[in-house]
Amino acid sequence: MKKLIVSLSTLAVIALALVFFPGCSNDQNSSALPKICILQTANHPALDKTVQGIKTSLTNKYSQQGITIVTESAQSNPTLAKQIAEKFKRQNPSIVVGVGTMPTQTLQATCPNIPLVFASVTDPKGAGLVKEPKNPKNNITGVSNTLPLNLQTKILVLLLKKIAPVNTSFALGFPYDPKEPNSLSLIRLLTPLAKQEGITLKPQAVSSTAEVPQAAAKLSKLGLQAHFVSNDSTILSSLINFTQTSTVPVISSDTDTINSATLAFGPSQTKVGQTAGELIISILNGKKASELDILYPTLEDLEIVANEKDLKRFKITLSNAELAEIKKEAIRLTETKVDSKS
């Protein structure tokens, strides 16, 4: 009996502690400042840069004091994401922001009445976020983080021709983490496109950062001309390690990672974040999220950069003028293709 009383009273004390937790006062958004709550999948360089981009464009517009920005990381755990989303909901934010697919899905399910802006979601339709990229309807809009695939293919083939001028066909290593929705859809879409240009994609699954050097060593034995690394958290987290182990140049599709790769092209993740920031500003200015089309990086956002130091390792020289030429050529090839299609 005594045991029962102790148990019940302990439970009661804990319950009371929960209800009267210090700071239980409602700190609802009493001030008129707009409040933005950002939830990112995890802390890793590419996502951090996107978040940084969002913050930069917002503080440029409103100044540090003019806007409240809360950032949380779900630590790759969907259940934790749910609890954070619920906390956001109570804070009455003007807009919630999902950086990555999983947090965006969670925010959409948890706070359907708060405008939702996403960034770094490769396939918003496939993730069930929207039915149509134009006029998304569900109080949601955002920025995807990938360049059109045929453009990516053209750039890859142009870069490969510089890397291995004598070759007519190429083999391209593609390390990826099967956990990443982005990487899987990319393999599916890119393989046939690359084939048309004479590039054979050699995917290699890597399920943790610890396996990255092994994957590099294994891929290097396949007689490749280069590696291609897309927007994949696991690989990007240990990109420098991968590049150092690799015996062929590494091309990354994230220009912010150029210090850890040989070559990089694409929209910078910071820029993706900034574009998302601009969508947020439009909504704060009275636009409805559902009226704003989902944005994809444009040809103008394309940057191609090289890591001089690493290029030297492979005895390749690529001047800035040559890179600019590749960019122009890739855009021209892509546009003629679009024209010929239509």
Binding site: Q75, S76, N77, P78, T79, K82, M102, Q105, T106, Q108, A109, A127, G128, P178, K179
Partner: peptide
């Protein structure tokens, strides 16, 4: 949660 995620087994 309205989605199944390969990462949901963590923890």
């Amino acid at each position: 949660q309205n989605f199944a995620d390969i990462g949901s087994g963590i923890g």
